[in-house]
Design a binder for these strands. Structure first.
Lengths: 156, 156
DNA sequence: AACCTTTTTGCGACTCAATTGCATCTACGA
DNA sequence: TCGTAGATGCAATTGAGTCGCAAAAAGGTT
């Protein structure tokens, strides 16, 4: 699954072109890396993967990841180890995602699963939080994040 | 509400004694601080508050906070700014919480609200996530965290 | 195809929360 | 009161992430 990296490059280029922003080598490399992964990746994961095919500065990887979040191609997940992990947005691989507007549609909601043993984080597109939240009066919701911890299928 | 610190000291001492572990000045001070707050506090928040009445090393505050989490008196919340915030567990103030066993009762669930403007994080004891989660087969849940972002009553 | 302007990139230095190692001190049971 | 497991203080370290700035593209224009 990891070795699909090269095959994802054209798809990455197309998605980047669709944003109307500049298509650069670091952006293609980072996006292709995310496209080739089925779980959320830390900056370090991405940088290590990218380093197999390119020579790209750490800082650039940070900046590209942030940029991908900014143009709604990816989103970031706060881990329990104080490390951000990144994952593509559901439709990002298919269509070219939206423009830089981003910043969440009304009540953008996500669910993630993190395995306590192997530490991998997966995105649960299926699960719609949809909880019966009764916030104190005066509170308004803009975003909901559901994080589930436990054991994944492989570690169980 | 902040000034209730001194009044919380006896309660803090009692809760600590109930754990069977050592009752030390730093532990009392940190716990009394958490008892006097209605929202989650970062290490820095706690250290600053504690410093008004004691001279306690930063590292000790870190260690006491971790310890409080370990004995199930408090829990930690990962913030979007890579800073841990700490808050008492629901019943911790009343009874003496459990022994060091901890590590979550079956499917321990929490909900937190973080204000995008003032940055304060509150614990929503009322909200029970209770979502219709359909995990992929083989996955097992041990813990659920719901994080809601938005505007609190004061910032709206 | 060479040119120009705007963005990106690379590099070094830096920030800052959190951790570690170790010597010293102390809570509390004997 | 004493002895010791456990807690604390201090200094140094880690490591993710950020900043400033000069050099290097990207992509539109001529």
């Amino acid at each position: 699954m990891k070795l699909a990296y090269l095959a994802k490059i054209p798809q990455a280029q197309a998605a980047l072109r669709a944003t109307g922003e500049r298509v650069t080598e670091p952006r293609v490399a980072v996006l292709a890396t995310l496209l080739s992964s089925d779980h959320a990746m830390s900056h370090l994961d991405v940088a290590a993967m990218v380093a197999k095919h390119h020579t790209i500065d750490r800082v650039t990887v940070y900046r590209v990841l942030d940029w991908l979040v900014g143009v709604s191609i990816a989103h970031r997940i706060a881990g329990d180890d104080r490390v951000w992990r990144f994952m593509l947005n559901p439709q990002a691989s298919a269509q070219g995602a939206g423009k830089k507007t981003a910043h969440h549609a009304p009540s953008h909601a996500h669910a993630h699963f993190t395995c306590n043993t192997c530490g991998q984080t997966f995105c649960l597109d299926k699960v719609q939080p949809k909880m019966n939240v009764k916030l104190p009066t005066g509170f308004r919701t803009t975003e909901v994040d559901l994080k589930i911890r436990g054991l994944c299928a492989e570690c169980k």
